[in-house]
Every structure is written in C-alpha cells, then in structure tokens.
C-alpha cells in the first residue's frame, strides 16, 4: 500500500479511462479507482450514435469495454474501491477508500454524475416499482404496457425511442412546450406512432400500492392538476426519469472550488489545488457528452504529466 503512483484516477467512465489511456501511454504509473463497474453513466445507454467513429449498433457497454481494454493495454492499473475521504494538499495526495489507501503525486477526479431525481413525493418509494432511471435495466418489464418518460433532452428522447421496442405506448412529459433534444432525434420521436407528448407539465406525485398505479401531473402554465391512472388490466405503468444529472462531489466540499456542486477547473482541467485535476461530467462545462469527457481526460493526463515533470 506504500506505492506512490504518478497518477490516481477516480472513476472509470469515459473521462477516467481516457485519462488512463493517455497517462499509461506516457509511461506514468497510473491507478484507476472505480467504485462499482467501468463505464459510468454511458453503460446505461442502449445506443451511442454521436461519438465519432461509433457506427450503428454501438452501445454504451461495448464502447466502454474497448476503452477499458485500451487503458489496460497501456499499463494503467485498476482497482475496485469506493473513495470516502481525500487528502489533496501537499505533494503526496492520499485517497482513502473502503478497502485501502492510495497515494499519488497527482489526482484526476472523473467521478462523474448520477441521475437527477424529480424530487416529488412517492418517487423514492416506487423506485424499482415502476420508477426507473435506466431503460436498458428495466424496459423489459413494460412489454405491452404504458410508459411515461420525464424529460426533453437527448437522453430522454433517445431512451423514449428505445422504450418503444417494448412498451405499447410511450408518452414524453416535458416541462416546456418544445424538446431540447437534437433535431434529428426529435424528428425520429415525432415520426414514431407509439410516441405521444404531454407539454408544459411536471410530475407532482407518484402513487401506488406496492407498485406504481397513478401519478399526478401539474401543468406549469395553468397550474391545473391531472391524475393519470393505470389501465385496469395493466395494473401499472412505467415512469422513466431523464431530467439531467447531479455531480458526485460531496467529499470535495470545502477542499475544491465548486459551482452548483460541479468542480471548477481552468481550460487545462486544473482545479484550485495543485496537482489535482477534474475531467468529464463532474466539472463545470457546457456540454456533457462522451466525446467531451474523453477530451477532458486526455487533457488532464497530459497536464498531470507536466506537473510531475516540474515537481
């Protein structure tokens, strides 16, 4: 446990793996620490259409498997542990995990973000009982049933399209009167006969008896409340929530500069603490995609190398 790595990377999503590829290739001793499974958010995505070089049929898991293989090929080591405490000041950084302690000259934080909940009554109670944040996990339960998708961005609309392969009907509930998703995805959704829309609306409450059987919507313009009740034969329906993400940065509060929970960096991925970098969804940025995560990871690794040279 006394080994001091050149680079410690928190998170094995696209940002962390990309950092691992670049650091490993630069012959820096590199350790990637992942708390659960490689890939982060992207493994929940059934289809990756917009990452350069990805052709039809590429899924989140297949893309990430190759990234992980590539990082390993360049010598990046990996360990599965959850970091619970960090000591980032000084020349030797220490990350304390549930299983062990890790020391490094530099740290690249690529811990990503998790799905943002709606925050309404009943949501937590019925998670896994009709409420889901993962279409690839739970879509199969809703074969021939009705499904509602909450959100209007790329992820929401893409997952709504995926859900049409299973569900009888998919209704997108969006708080505005137009989608924010890319035009090409919008066109596909609007042309799909199984997809319907409820505009200007938010979910106020989710109800049921063991499993979801109704929900209350509020029209944000008229403040009118409507209750949607499951078809009697169906007994239930699905509510898939894709309204954005929340960064996983609680343990950095008071140590790193944060903005709305996201880590603030400069163009070179440097945080306010020397030798500590952030990459991917966890940092303040305008576009959170696999392509920008991978780019961040590369920049962070190259900057970490520069920092070590100057030590």
């Amino acid at each position: 446990m006394s080994k001091v790595y050149d680079v410690l990377i928190i998170g094995a999503g696209p940002a962390g793996l990309s950092a691992g590829i670049y650091a490993g290739r630069a012959r820096l001793s590199t350790l990637i620490i992942e708390k659960e499974k490689d890939g982060g958010q992207i493994v929940l995505t059934s289809e990756v259409e917009n990452y350069p070089g990805c052709l039809e049929g590429e899924s989140g898991p297949t893309l990430v498997d190759r990234m992980a293989e590539q990082a390993k090929h360049f010598g990046a080591e990996k360990v599965y542990d959850e970091i619970v405490e960090v000591k980032l000041e000084g020349k030797e950084k220490v990350l304390v995990g549930k299983k062990g302690e890790y020391k490094g000259k530099t740290v690249i934080i690529a811990s990503g973000a998790a799905s943002r909940p709606i925050g309404c009554p009943g949501e937590k109670t019925f998670t896994g009982k009709g409420v889901s944040y993962c279409a690839t996990c739970d879509a199969a339960f809703f074969e021939d049933l009705e499904v509602f998708v909450v959100g209007g961005g790329d992820t929401a609309v893409e997952e709504a399209l995926y859900l049409t392969k299973f569900a009888r009907k998919v209704t997108i509930i969006h708080r505005r009167n137009e989608l924010r998703a890319a035009k090409s995805i919008q066109e596909k959704a609007k042309a799909n006969p199984k997809i319907d829309f409820i505009w200007d609306s938010v979910v106020k409450e989710i109800k049921g008896d063991g499993i979801v059987n109704s929900m209350v919507l509020e029209n944000v313009k008229t403040k009118e409340l409507t209750e949607i009740v499951a078809d009697e034969d169906d007994m239930t329906f699905g509510i898939f929530v894709f309204i954005g993400y929340e960064p996983k940065t609680k343990m950095f509060e008071g140590i790193l500069e944060l903005q709305n929970g996201y880590i603030v960096t400069d163009d070179n991925m440097r945080t306010n603490v020397e030798g500590v970098f952030a990459a991917g969804d966890v940092r303040v940025k305008s576009l959170r995609q696999v392509v920008t995560a991978a780019a961040d990871g590369a920049i962070a690794a190259v900057q970490a190398e520069k920092y070590i040279e100057e030590l």
Partner: peptide, 13 residues
Amino acid sequence: RRVAIGQKVLGLP
C-alpha cells in the same frame, strides 16, 4: 417477467 411483477419487482437489480 410475470413472476417478477408478481413479486412487485419492476426495476433491477
């Protein structure tokens, strides 16, 4: 699927 829904399992794992 029916067995799972019968056990009120509608989300995984």
